[in-house]
Nucleic acid binder design. Sequence first.
DNA 1: CAATTTATTTAACAAATGATAAAAAATGAA
DNA 2: TTCATTTTTTATCATTTGTTAAATAAATTG
Lengths: 188, 188
Amino acid sequence: MTVISNKIDEIFLLPPTEKQLFLSRFERIDVLKGTIVVSAEKIERYVYFIEEGIARAFRETDKGQRTIWFGEAGGVILSFLSFFKNQPGYESIEVLEDSVLYRISSSHLQELYNLHLPIANWGRKFAEQELLLTEQRFMDLQFRTATERYEDLIKHSPTILKRVQLGHIASYLGITQVSLSRIRSAKK
Amino acid sequence: MTVISNKIDEIFLLPPTEKQLFLSRFERIDVLKGTIVVSAEKIERYVYFIEEGIARAFRETDKGQRTIWFGEAGGVILSFLSFFKNQPGYESIEVLEDSVLYRISSSHLQELYNLHLPIANWGRKFAEQELLLTEQRFMDLQFRTATERYEDLIKHSPTILKRVQLGHIASYLGITQVSLSRIRSAKK
DNA sequence: CAATTTATTTAACAAATGATAAAAAATGAA
DNA sequence: TTCATTTTTTATCATTTGTTAAATAAATTG
């Protein structure tokens, strides 16, 4: 649980008592490659932390699946809509390799938020951090070209590039696979 | 202060004591049309709530200003990067009409977060809500065409369409003004 | 290993959007 | 109002990206 424990500390450092309380609410699950952890059809009642493995969030469209997010060890799997508003979310999330996850239920988390100030502030910092990441994605999409976004991916997430097929990468970048292939060949 | 007071309640209902404490930290400012409330150059130490008026966030690029957000009464003016990470943000924010704002300083807010559980949870809900809005923007940009985004704007924010010039709208939609003009003429 | 499936690249054409320039319309100031 | 400025629309051409289909390469399975 070390990866996740570090991740939790990184978001907001909890006093030992609260940290322990928080961790005690987590439950380990081992999932096989291809498992759909979160389904767009359903309201999801857990937040998952990735201890080991890699995950992909995607939306089903008329033109097939389109990837909206990749997560590696230390990443958090959740549907914001599901978890914050109790609605079915936009996305489904699958693991692309056999993975080890730890999850905490919505109701446990709510209870902790309502009783423990440090944990409420942890939740706030968590939301703020995810907000910054989402804003970053938005800015990239709005202000950078597909080529630049691809180069950023090479630079900042080489692991993903190596472990994930290009069709998923292309839709993540907001372009077709053909277009990505053109970008790749232009770069040589 | 009624618009803002309602907005605060909408995010998360505070007990009367905390609500009053929270409100007591706000300060009213009246700003003239064209005032730059938040500058991309600086670290901004306030969050502003719009009681009356309309605002626009934009980034300076090599091709001129590009709008990233519009806010009306009840909206919140802040740079996430500035406020959450104490860094200069991406955007500058100006008011497009004479406006009435209420602001609370970063340090006051931090203090309230650290001492009052309900306010910490208010802050969490606020971040969660802004996260959902940002995610929505991202999804729109990624999954909908410029034409659809324009139609959504007509449907959901007719006020903005009426009060803001089309150049700003176009860059908000992520297209050129020429392209927006084409979309508008195709619709007749 | 060969056979089959899946993933990736390439090519040709269509559609959408950008860039630039000019015209038309709207706005604001004297 | 009239003139000057700003905003919006229109037109033309270049560029980018999408679409479809086929070819190549890689991975998987029996």
